[in-house]
Design a protein around this nucleic acid. Structure first.
Length: 478
RNA sequence: GCCCCCAUCGUCUAGUGGCCUAGGACACCACCCUUUCAAGGUGGCGGCACGGGUUCGAAUCCCGUUGGGGGUGCCA
């Protein structure tokens, strides 16, 4: 594996286990690793932790690579290495275990899980009591290899949390090799990190309790441990670690719901970290380039952070709003049903850009322009509340009749003329424009809210506008 | 139970002993603007968990309490 080490500089790694979806928490740690790699000029190693081969499926790895690429972590970037597969390295793990056994750092034990538990109860200790430490057992079927935890204290120097110390007495002799000879996560993880010459392990805090064990393994294997960094976990509203069961954690899902990668990346990075200058700027919206330049593990907050979809939405809205027109039009058009006229959409698109929370809102914002038209079209489904409110004023029917007459007669069919025409009526009826346009809006779009009305009518065209207004008038007068 | 981590507005955070009458962002509320809704502008609501120290001085340092989280597998 060492032949991969060609690029100088620190070596970071991202080591997800394939589960069929990409966790937003994983996305965050991947991004942090990536930011550091880009600035320091090191290497980002992707390693798929598929030790539990029953769970491994090729398409899941593909999903991980895709998700990373979406976030801007491209496998064709010069700093990217991998994916490597942990399962492909099983021989190396077992060889390392063998060395540990031979050097006396590990020993075999023939107790079953149940027996370990029974002993613990009888002796009233927690976990494994070291029963086979000095029994000199040789390898054999059903025998697990356990690490001989030395006496003393293990101090983990953590880049985000400082020194964390663990009394080795509280750490049991953990299993390295299962009874069937298969390596455990702890072993495989460390051996791979050693083999891949990893210098920085940046991951979520849930791994912190494992770290002293891993550090002892590094030492027993004859290597100085890497720099550790444990960033706080992401939690839900109940302050529990984000879990697949309860929470929406799949990056793919946010992606398919119309969230922009840039918004997601920016938001994820602000969880536990604030870009310097954000306060002066009055905004947390920052470019990836500045994140790369400024992100530091030392500045990461120490408490769990709530993944707040509302704030993500706010970020997304900002990002959609600031897309340049061509990019925006392409992204928005992609959300449309195939049979909707793209040219027609292009005319209204600019008017909805700053009204979108996600790209998924696009069709619903302009659907009325693509409904069936003409005399044979089915009647428009009005939003009841909107209709009731707009139709309520006593002048509603009269105004609508006047609008129909005026719009049937205007010479130029453009939004300025339509607006001016409506303003004439508004003065006649002594009402505000906002009120005057309410009924026509419901009549044409079916709803009380939507894009600017006159611009929309311009796109819709005279015939269909008048037809819809007339249909509404018929309904009104009953 | 045991081990480890953490503790500033509802949320994400700035803050590393005096600049704090604690700042910003999201959310929420109000007003302005307005072609509905947005966007934009202005303002508002709202927090240093508690108790002891240390110090001339504590959100900042120490101790304790309480609260929250993570871990505790022949899972990863």
């Amino acid at each position: 594996m060492n032949e991969h080490i060609s690029r100088p500089g620190p070596r970071f790694r991202f080591a997800p286990s394939p589960t069929g979806f990409f966790h937003v928490g994983g996305a965050r740690t991947a991004l942090m690793n990536w930011a550091l790699v880009q600035r320091l000029g090191g290497t980002f190693v992707l390693r798929i932790e598929d030790t539990d081969e029953a769970r491994n499926r090729p398409e899941w790895t593909e999903g991980i690579v895709d998700a990373l690429a979406w976030l801007g972590i491209s496998d064709s970037d010069e700093h990217f290495e991998g994916p490597h597969f942990q399962s492909a390295n099983a021989d190396v793990h077992i060889a390392a275990a063998q060395r540990l056994f031979e050097s006396g750092s590990a020993y075999y034990c023939d107790l079953t899980g149940q027996e370990v538990q029974d002993r613990a109860e009888k002796l009233s200790v927690t976990g494994y009591d070291g029963y086979s430490r000095d029994r000199g057992l040789e390898p054999g079927p059903g025998r697990v290899l356990r690490f001989r935890v030395p006496e003393g204290v293990t101090i983990v120097s953590d880049l985000v949390r400082g020194d964390v110390s663990f009394d080795n007495e509280t750490i049991e002799d953990f299993v390295l090799l299962r009874g069937n000879g298969a390596p455990m996560f702890l072993l495989a993880n460390v051996v791979d990190d050693v083999e891949m010459a990893i210098s920085h392990v940046v991951r979520a805090e849930e791994h912190l309790p494992n770290t002293p064990k891993q550090q002892m393994l590094w030492n027993a294997l004859g290597h100085a441990p890497p720099a550790w960094a444990h960033v706080p976990v992401l939690v839900n509203e109940q302050r529990k670690k984000l879990s697949k069961r309860r929470d929406k954690v799949a990056l793919e899902q946010y992606r398919s719901e119309g969230f922009l990668a840039d918004a997601m990346v920016n938001y994820l990075m602000t969880l536990g970290w604030t870009p310097p200058g954000a306060e002066e700027a009055g905004s947390e919206i920052v470019s990836w380039a500045s994140i790369e330049a400024d992100f530091a593990l030392e500045d990461v907050n120490l408490s769990p952070a709530f993944f707040d979809v509302k704030k993500l939405v706010a970020f997304n809205k900002q990002y959609i709003k600031s897309m340049d027109s061509a990019e925006y039009l392409a992204a928005a058009s992609a959300e449309l049903p195939d049979d909707w006229d793209r040219e027609r959409f292009a005319m209204i698109a600019p008017h909805i850009q700053e009204r979108l929370e996600t790209l998924k809102d696009v069709p619903g914002a302009v659907d009325f322009l693509f409904w069936p038209q003409g005399e044979d079209a089915p009647p428009i489904q009005y939003d009841d509340a909107a209709w009731d409110k707009a139709a309520k004023p006593e002048w509603a029917a009269a105004l609508l009749a006047d609008v129909i007459e005026a719009y049937g007669a205007v010479e130029l069919w453009d939004h300025e003329t339509l607006k001016a025409s409506m303003e004439d009526l508004m003065r006649q009826y002594e009402i505000k424009l906002g009120k005057a346009q309410a009924l026509p809006r419901v009549a044409v779009t079916g709803r009380a809210v939507g894009p600017p009305l006159f611009e929309a009518l311009e796109v819709l065209g005279r015939n269909e506008t008048v037809r819809r207004l007339t249909a509404a008038a018929d309904r009104l007068t009953g």
